[in-house]
Design a binder for these strands. Structure first.
Length: 448
RNA sequence: GACCCUGUCGUCUAGCCCGGUCAGGACAAGAGCUUUUCAAGCUCUCGGCACGGGUUCAAAUCCCGUCAGGGUCACCA
């Protein structure tokens, strides 16, 4: 039975790298028909906070990574104490003040490793029992460390709480984790933990160490390098499907040149052996591109439903009429949005109380007086009994033709007059979405 | 510094295990088409096997070395 776990510590928000670790664990569990376990490593009481726990859980749900079992290490302190006591009694650990340490080197007491593992080659060198610890990493192949690199490790801290490695080993063993999939930054923890497994008499699980996500400087992504919290991406208007899709492509590939791929399709294709060894630089550009693809292909009504709460937040007093009108606006901007928040930025001319005129656009397109044309166009448009993009365009082109102007001569000034900007979607679709009343009104007010 | 991990276009990657297809795709960049603007879309272009030795008829692929980058060295996780 495949059982994997993701073990975040609630001392900060869910990191984008952590999210990818969770994702690979989740995909592996699903691909193997196993269980995905979420374990909260809150042994550091001083740094752990409930707000962070809530945020992590929220982000996991948002990403769609549901867990089968949930544990908190703070509920299990008795367990860790019992195992520490056992090691003490067996002489494999010793006490230093209130802390409990695992015996490893010659000092203060000769190592137990040589005695309990007669099969391995022991070599007396600088005073300590020495051997090579190796494991077959599912991603990296064979990795080995010399025990002389490992010092006596603290198992239980002076305050009675377990250290990371001790709690981690006990939990992974007791929760019957079959494979530990975690970041590359844990490689050097692995031999230390294998030693603890042995001391406890547990069989170590398989290990798979994921490459790290790097920043532009090729260093591990950190808070100071920009956005690392999953919740930041959510707030900026990224879709969970896009974030998940992007993250899975960092260090893994379905192998068929497919870039846009759903979680369920990825699971079908997933193989831990196809995960890369080298760190991957995070590219916001590519994430944005993917997000834009998801938005373009999303059902308009669904997209409108995602945008509605954002609009209500920005314009608390606006009623937004019926859903159909919002859908029309969404339809108009869908093809050009990269994030959900782009929509808010571009549609203020529809939802805000007052039109904001971009100064540069005004100077470029409205500096010449076009009050005669605007007035006649407004009259013609207001007399339309069926006002829509098609009839507005016909009216517009007819007048422009009569005046011997080219369409462009009037299109740009009118766009600025209606939207406040020089750029935007097609003018007649914009008019349709703005509505007859406001279109006419803005045309009449522009030069008066 | 010690130990460990890694090295294919600027970036993410396919290919590597089982040597032989102009080293394929995507993002970004550049050009064009389309067009009432900006995007989008479509087409094209640019650009890479870190370096040096081997092995071999043949090396991105196998072996060795060098260099470069990263990670870890807590009573933090």
């Amino acid at each position: 039975m495949v059982r994997v776990r993701f073990a975040p510590s609630p001392t900060g928000y869910l990191h984008i790298g952590g999210a990818r670790t969770a994702l690979f664990n989740w995909m592996y569990a699903k691909a193997q028909g196993g269980k995905f376990i979420l374990r909260i490593e809150d042994t550091d009481k001083a740094r752990s906070r409930v707000e962070f726990l809530d945020e992590i859980l929220d982000s996991m749900k948002w990403l769609g990574l549901k867990w089968d079992e949930l544990y908190k290490q703070s509920d299990r302190f008795d367990l860790y104490r019992q195992y520490a006591q056992k090691l003490l009694e067996q002489g494999k650990a010793y006490q230093d003040g209130e802390a409990v340490l695992l015996k490893m080197s010659a000092n203060p007491a000769r190592g137990w490793i040589g005695e309990t593992s007669p099969s391995v080659k022991n070599k007396e060198s600088d005073g300590g029992p020495q051997r090579i610890i190796k494991w077959f990493d599912l991603i990296r192949g064979e990795v080995q460390f010399d025990t002389k690199e490992i010092k006596d490790q603290v198992l239980m801290k002076s305050d009675g709480s377990p250290t990371y490695s001790f709690a981690c080993v006990i939990d992974d063993a007791l929760m019957e984790i079959s494979c530990v999939i975690r970041g590359e930054d844990h490689i050097s923890n692995t031999p230390k933990q294998i030693v603890i497994y042995e001391a406890l008499g547990f069989k170590p699980p398989k290990f798979a160490h994921l490459p790290l996500i790097l920043d532009d400087e090729r260093a591990r992504m950190s808070k100071r390098a920009g956005a690392v919290a999953v919740s930041d991406y959510r707030r900026w208007g990224f879709l969970p499907e896009a974030v998940v899709n992007y993250l899975m492509l960092l260090g893994w590939s379905p192998g068929n040149n497919q870039e846009k791929i759903t979680l369920s399709a990825a699971v079908k294709n997933f193989s831990i052996k196809k995960i890369n060894k080298a760190g991957a630089v995070f590219s916001l550009d590519k994430l944005k591109w993917l997000n834009g693809q998801y938005i373009k292909e999303m059902d308009t009504a669904k997209l409108a439903a995602l945008i509605m709460p954002l609009l209500k937040e920005k314009y608390p007093l606006n009623g937004f009429g019926n859903g159909q009108r919002l859908e029309n606006v969404v339809q108009l901007f869908k093809g050009r949005m990269v994030t959900l928040t782009d929509f808010l930025e571009w549609t203020d001319f529809i939802f805000a109380d007052h039109l904001q005129l971009d100064e540069e656009a005004r100077q470029k397109h409205l500096s010449q007086d076009k009050s005669r044309e605007f007035g006649l166009l407004a009259d013609a448009l207001s007399s339309l009994s069926d006002f829509n993009a098609k009839t507005a365009e016909e009216t517009f082109r007819r007048l422009v033709g009569q005046w011997g102007m080219s369409a462009g001569d009037l299109v740009h000034p009118v766009r600025v007059a209606l939207t406040g900007r020089a750029v935007g979607p097609g003018l007649f679709d914009t008019m349709a979405v703005l509505g007859q009343h406001r279109t006419v009104e803005r045309l009449r007010k522009t030069f008066n």
